[in-house]
């Protein structure tokens, strides 16, 4: 292929960004936390947007940034937040021998593709998009989209609506029982065996020399009160032992003035 199609600045851009993007995508496989993978993927997508713009696909470059790095990665991070940021992947392989087989197959596939691309010839020099983009890239795309591709375009709009509806149906969560009202909660507090919690549960950190939400309150006899900690924190195991904040020796001596 001829050298004239790509000018030096674009080559510099390519050799600067492409290795970084490959490193980022490799890092995406190797890092443990899903959030880090998402950040690295966002970097790869921004790189691709640069490449689109460099290749005369201005509209697609902008759409890549708005849709992929904007909306799609945002959605990924949002779902990571819902599912739990620290739900880190165990990198141990569960199926024995899966990893070497996968890497061998992928390297074979990639090598096959690259060698195929290297041997393929077009039979003519690459054209470049200067003629096709003469009226502007957006205008050229719009002319195609609203003439030859009108039917696919409308089908895709139906697909978008269906996907939005499907996501709503899947994510909808219906309560099977009524939420207890304040009156019912109050009645339930007095119907239990002990009236210890009738006046309300103790707040965390009371008498514990530390008023964080994860430090249990101390009862008058000095033992920690587990009921003062939120059930969610208890389930997560995020409770600090309040005895760690106790003074070793309470200094009760009075220094007499001479």
């Amino acid at each position: 292929m001829t050298q004239s199609l790509i000018q030096t600045p674009e080559a510099v851009l390519f050799w600067l960004l492409a290795p970084l993007a490959v490193l980022a995508s490799l890092g995406m496989l190797l890092v443990k936390k899903a959030v880090h993978s998402a950040i690295l993927l966002a970097w790869v997508m921004i790189t691709l947007a640069f490449f689109y713009i460099a290749q005369g696909a201005l509209f697609l470059g902008i759409v890549q940034i708005v849709v992929y790095t904007g909306a799609v990665m945002m959605l990924f991070l949002f779902i990571l937040m819902l599912v739990g940021v620290d739900s880190s992947d165990s990198l141990t392989e569960t199926i024995r021998g899966l990893r070497p087989i996968a890497i061998t197959a992928a390297v074979g596939f990639g090598g096959w593709r690259i060698s195929l691309l290297g041997r393929a010839t077009l039979g003519r020099p690459p054209v470049g998009l200067d003629a096709a983009n003469a009226d502007g890239n957006v205008q050229g795309l719009a002319r195609l989209l609203f003439s030859d591709y009108v039917w696919p375009f409308e089908v895709v709009s139906a697909l978008l609506i269906t996907a939005a509806l499907g996501a709503m149906v899947l994510a909808h969560h219906q309560r099977t029982n009524m939420r207890p009202t304040q009156r019912e909660q109050s009645i339930n507090r007095f119907r239990t065996d002990s009236l210890a919690g009738a006046a309300g549960l103790p707040g965390p950190g009371v008498f514990a020399r530390h008023n964080a939400v994860d430090v249990p309150a101390l009862l008058p006899d000095g033992t920690p009160a587990p009921s003062s900690i939120s059930a969610t924190l208890k389930a997560r195991g995020d409770v600090i032992d309040s005895s760690s904040f106790q003074l070793d020796v309470v200094d009760t001596t009075i220094i007499e003035e001479k």
Binding site: T2, Q3, V22, V44, F109, R113, G118
Partner: peptide, 20 residues
């Protein structure tokens, strides 16, 4: 540099994604 480099780069990214 020929446009083929973009194709090689894309093939590499596709392979990495497939491994992942």
């Amino acid at each position: 540099m020929s446009p083929n480099n973009y194709l090689y780069f894309a093939a590499l990214l596709f392979t990495i994604g497939a491994i992942g």
